[in-house]
Amino acid sequence: MHIGERIKILRKERKMTQEDLAKVLKVAPTAVSAWESGRNKPLMDKLSIMSTCFDVPLSHLVDGTSVVKNDPSMEFLNEKNVRLIGVYGNIPAGEPNFTNEYIEAYMPTLNSMLKNNKDYFYLRVKGNSMNKEFSDGALILVEKTSYLKNGNIGVVLVNGYEATVKQVKMAEDTITLIPCSTDPFYEEKTYHIKNDRVKILGKVVQAIKIYD
């Protein structure tokens, strides 16, 4: 059973039409129809709303995990225990400002996975330079920080260009960006932090694998 079939069952159990659900989610009824037929999949922010609307854990919607009512081990997504974190398809060149105009969606993320005093963003991976860690199209959760330890995987901006994701090796005045790839085309590169205008944007703390 695919995700759309579970949405259809839950919707009908609650005697909702596709139009009813569409109004709750602020989408067109055709979007709900496409999900239920398996032609498309809802984004995580819509799944979060449906999780609350249907009173089921997100895991049940995503992969069919059994619903056990009043089970304290099941964390339900709601406005009290999640933070909506912006998903960036790319980070703009120059001085990144992380404004809403660059956000393509919002990902609900459990507070238990986050630090209270830290800010985060999701970035969609492009290319295969880190395919040993995560594939092209995967989402990575990034903790905003200007400091990285040797061996951390970070998001780094060099010379004002689009941000790159690499494992890092730090020295006093230099930073080496190390690809983790099965493709020998990608090689490690060393930059002078000041001369090459290197800006560390964050540390990768989690990756979400995307399946075709």
Rank of each mutant, 00 (worst) to 15 (best):
L61A: 09
S129A: 15
V87W: 03
K189W: 03
M1K: 06
P179V: 12
L43C: 02
V168F: 09
N152G: 02
G202V: 04
M170D: 01
V27C: 09
I49A: 07
E79D: 14
K144A: 11
L148R: 01
Y191P: 01
P92V: 10
R83K: 08
D55H: 12
P57E: 06
T17R: 04
T65C: 00
R197V: 05
D55Y: 02
K126E: 13
D119V: 01
R14I: 03
I140P: 07
T65L: 08
W35R: 01
G137F: 04
P72C: 09
K41Q: 15
R124V: 15
A207V: 07
N150C: 10
T30L: 08
Q206L: 13
A163K: 02
R197C: 07
C180Q: 15
E19G: 09
V204M: 13
M1V: 08
S37H: 02
K23N: 15
D183S: 11
A105G: 01
F134Q: 05
T65K: 14
Y211D: 11
D71C: 05
K26S: 13
M44P: 01
V155I: 15
D136P: 02
E104S: 14
D45R: 09
K12L: 06
N117C: 00
H60G: 03
S37K: 11
K209V: 06
T17A: 03
V67E: 08
Y120H: 05
P29K: 10
I175M: 11
N116H: 10
K8R: 14
R124L: 10
I178F: 08
L84N: 12
V24E: 15
T182Y: 07
E172I: 09
Y106H: 13
N131K: 06
P96S: 08
I7Q: 10
R39Q: 13
V158L: 10
K46Y: 04
A28W: 10
F185M: 13
S135G: 09
K46H: 09
R83S: 12
Y211E: 14
M50T: 03
T145H: 00
K115V: 01
T164I: 11
T174D: 15
P108S: 13
V68F: 08
L10S: 06
C180K: 14
M50R: 05
T109C: 14
A22H: 04
P72V: 05
Y147V: 14
V156T: 03
V142D: 06
